[in-house]
Design a binder for these strands. Structure first.
Lengths: 201, 201
DNA sequence: CCATGGAATGACAGTAACTCTCAAAAGCTA
DNA sequence: TAGCTTTTGAGAGTTACTGTCATTCCATGG
């Protein structure tokens, strides 16, 4: 996907970026988000605090990267055109989940855990979800031939995003808000319900 | 609704609270959120910075109060039981909007404007929306006799919240993200679409 | 009317997340 | 190697927020 960085400079940058992220994650888990200072992270990653903020504009941003959106969009585009939009999104999610490696899954779990625990991070994660909403609407617009701003598209996109929000953390906060395997099954079922007009029986 | 505060102390507290909020709002609009310091707000409201933080745990919280949720819940409960849940929520929203005084409307507009402009505040507003999701699910559970955690309830609640999110700011960020009168009509139409199974024709 | 207890306030010190600036170091290019 | 650009580190400064403690203000019993 992303062409491997070639020059020494690029490689170094990628390495320090990764180092900062890993040490941050580790420290957050060990001693909590709030009580981990940027200085500690910087020291652990062997860079200066200044450098930390050059790589991540805010402390929050260390865990806030999410590269699934474009992958999901691609997966939706890969569905045959005769499949109705909600079902296409559903299948795309299923396909992406199924191809997730255990390592990716595990790191995703850890991120979600932090989102659930730190309200500040949760807010930001929800913000990303709201941005994803526009992407969903774009995809629906493509598939239906309607404009992305059309009310029917917005309503459908919103409904899809809302179902995701309601079933997966960090939107869901009832019960244990850690990510579980079964949550995805519930999500797929939920989208199926939506597709069938939200029957109550 | 809220019984008027009786003792002098209570009255004073309410007054300083209101003063802080008003001066904060004014200063934010005059010179921007970021470049308004808590010290300035405190000085304008004639209290010490310490007192500011006693009334509002963080700078953000000055504009983050939202007392519509309980009102909306009540309005939904007031709908006759034979009305299906989504339609009941739709009617409740319509009823609440219609009874909103011009002053309330105007202050709501101003708040939304700040949410749209300051990403930090937008995130927090979305957080409130996510919390409202649980309330919506509770109301749906009541009306349908299902458990609040039931997948059908969660899916429906999520869909409703998502439609709101997609049509009103701060969820909607496309176009001008200030609140307009016509937005509510669009929202009511959007909920009607959802109720009718999101037809594309 | 006054005294006493509890709550609200203000002054102060301290921490940590950022921001800015500038000079040193490291990588690139010829 | 020499010269240029990019990256880094050090340091100072701002601001949001926390905790403490003495003071002031309000309520209540005598």
């Amino acid at each position: 996907m992303t062409s491997p960085p070639t020059s020494l400079r690029e490689r170094k940058k990628a390495k320090t970026r990764a180092a900062i992220r890993e040490h941050a994650m580790r420290l957050f888990e060990e001693q909590g988000y709030a009580s981990t200072t940027v200085d500690q992270i910087a020291e652990a990653a062997e860079v200066s605090p200044s450098t930390f903020f050059r790589y991540f504009p805010a402390k929050e941003d260390v865990i806030l990267v999410d590269d699934y959106d474009p992958i999901l969009v691609e997966a939706v585009r890969a569905q045959p055109p005769e499949v109705p939009p909600i079902e296409a999104i559903r299948r795309a999610m299923r396909d992406v989940f199924l191809t997730m490696s255990p390592e990716v899954w595990e790191s995703e779990r850890r991120r979600q855990k932090l989102f659930a625990e730190v309200p500040e991070l949760r807010s930001r994660a929800l913000n990303q979800m709201a941005e994803a909403l526009d992407l969903i609407c774009d995809v629906i617009a493509e598939r239906t031939g309607l404009a992305a701003g059309d009310l029917r598209v917005r309503a459908m996109g919103g409904a899809v995003a809302g179902v995701v929000l309601a079933i997966l953390p960090p939107g869901r906060m009832t019960g244990n808000s850690t990510l579980e395997r079964g949550d995805f099954d519930r999500l797929l079922d939920g989208l199926d319900l939506l597709q069938r007009g939200l029957p109550l029986v």
